[in-house]
Write a protein that binds this DNA or RNA. Structure first.
Lengths: 341, 341
DNA sequence: GCAAAAAATACAATCGATTGTATTGTTGCT
DNA sequence: AGCAACAATACAATCGATTGTATTTTTTGC
């Protein structure tokens, strides 16, 4: 039973050489002769040597880990973003530590602190709905932990960003409904604090305006866009004095539960009310009718986020130029909004 | 701009005391007087001290991290299991490092190695479909990294287990179909290598036998149970010489895509064919007709898994008694299987 | 064959915190 | 006052690997 705790000193002793040479050999330094390297490798194998990553990290003050904090790993957009991040990171020799804030500010704060304390080399985050202050992110960059924000905007000046063009998303989604003949379109929006929702709302407004439709304050319904919200939102829609013929929901989850509830009440989708969501959850293609939506290409965003962060980690010297990449969402038309064939 | 790199030595120097006293004070040891503790805490705050976790971990050879490897974080069962694990772990001061094998053996191997190299204090795993050998898990226990297997069985003698009673699940699911009047029931099974699928199959057989129905080899269809498999599986069902009136699928994903395809072909669900799945994915309650299924209570399994692992980590002395906890699945009856009102 | 250059290796400090042991300082008791 | 008992603090080794500098060995060129 080989002992887990073989160190470079054990190898050095066994071969009668110095541990620094062993260390260099194992790191394939050209300061060690090939012959010695081979001897050392062989002995290392024989003794079942495993580098102690903690010691190595401490000395190098670098961990080759990057931290990822997302609101919920179960959301399709986030899990595909994570896959994208991992793909790039693994290729470059970095490990990814995944955490979920569950949309709670306190958890997010703790996670940031823990990850930084564990000396991740960089941080990729999509901030929680509850997050109103960015104190926990201030100064991280300067203290050697570059931060990259993706998906959800954040007003800090420091970090780089990989964002979706939510304005365009809102504009395209709304325009699509209008093109299907809708004239009284309600918008389900999310917490004011999140810029994504503001931007989607602005896109909605712009589309209305462009097509000569009036914007009505009472057509914008706010909530946290969870499953339970969809039910109450749809009730509110039915209670409106005007007859509604279209809904643009800022996410799929609320759109779906609203649609279910409307169907239960005898509303026909899309004939009576056409619906479009946002995010392209896998469930959306499967429900009946299938839900039109805006795809956020999570995997691509993840890849870009990781690429940008790794660039930042490597060029720590040439910092200061904040980069922001904006990705276009894609309209996916399904049955929930097809009023015209 | 406080410098990130304040150490206990800086604090010690600033106060003219020894760093060991600072360390003990920060760890709230009773070997330091209250007065000194207060001075130290104050100075630590003033200098913006942050413990260097790497150094601490190295010295203590303990990280307070536990690793979790699951096939896919996007699967509802796994993400709820993870939430359960986190709930318990955080309460006890442990952090959770989440990884996904994507059902690939090589990735699983690498992840295990990386996590162990990073000295996680324990490992919770649900093994991948591709995993046939357990070499990468052998001896981990003995070398100080306790392993806990959940959800998917594994033939290693060492680790503790938190498993579902898949036999009972298969039995109950099949019995339910029979109670609805089905007599020709097909079973969608998963890879032979995974015991869970074997057990569900055995449960299926047992239920047939108990109710005096014949078991037919050709009624068992094997696949990896992905979305694309559901389509081909349903084609096979239609191509069978016998008229099928029930399907018990070993997961929801395959059940759903099969159901979709059958509906497209004009088969009525549940009138012509009743269907029941396994896992209770969120999507299952939303599709049309809603899918009957067996719930695995992921959150509870996660909590139990974490509790058991932490117990193991703490009592490293009194090892050797392997514990296995078996959880019962719950039958959830929805419309896809309701032939009788 | 020998000095100079280059290669290979050894020495020793270091990353930052923890911890067993030794030392100093206090208190209490007779 | 004197000594035991104990509290508070200091000293020093250690976790395991990395890395700048010094030293030894080998190679090269003339």
């Amino acid at each position: 039973m080989e002992n887990n705790s073989t160190t470079i000193h054990d190898i050095a002793k066994a071969l009668g050489i110095d541990s620094s040479t062993v260390s260099r050999a194992l790191n394939n330094s050209n300061r060690v002769s090939i012959k010695t390297k081979q001897k050392i490798l062989a002995k290392a194998n024989e003794l079942g040597y495993q580098r102690n990553v903690l010691a190595s990290n401490l000395r190098k003050s670098r961990t080759n880990n990057i931290g990822v904090i997302v609101p919920r790993i179960s959301r399709h957009f986030f899990s595909s973003a994570i896959s994208g991040i991992e793909e790039i990171a693994f290729k470059e020799g970095y490990n990814v530590i995944i955490c979920q804030s569950l949309e709670q500010f306190e958890r997010e704060q703790n996670l940031v602190q823990t990850l930084v304390a564990n000396r991740v080399d960089g941080l990729i985050m999509s901030i929680s709905m509850e997050t109103l202050s960015y104190k926990h992110l201030e100064g991280l960059d300067k203290h050697g932990t570059p931060v990259l924000i993706f998906d959800r905007h954040c007003d800090l000046p420091g970090p780089n960003n990989v964002l979706l063009d939510d304005f365009k998303g809102g504009f395209d989604a709304t325009s699509h409904l209008i093109s299907q003949g809708c004239t009284h379109i309600v918008h389900f929006s999310g917490p004011d604090s999140l810029r994504v929702y503001k931007n989607r709302l602005e896109g909605y407004k712009a589309a209305l305006e462009k097509h000569g439709l009036p914007f009505r304050e009472n057509f914008v319904l706010n909530s946290r866009l969870m499953t339970e919200d969809g039910v109450s939102l749809s009730e509110k829609v039915l209670a409106l004095p005007e007859k509604i013929d279209g809904i643009f929901s800022a996410n799929d989850v609320a759109a779906i539960s609203a649609m279910q509830n409307l169907k239960k009440k005898g509303v026909r989708i899309p004939e009576d009310i056409a619906i479009i969501g946002f995010s392209n959850e896998p469930i959306s293609s499967v429900i009946e009718p299938s839900l039109s939506t805006m795809d956020q290409s999570g995997s691509e965003m993840g890849k870009l986020a990781a690429t940008l962060l790794l660039k930042q980690i490597k060029n720590r010297a040439s910092e200061k130029k904040v980069e922001t990449i904006i990705i276009n969402p894609t309209l996916i038309v399904r049955n929930s909004s097809k009023k015209k064939s």
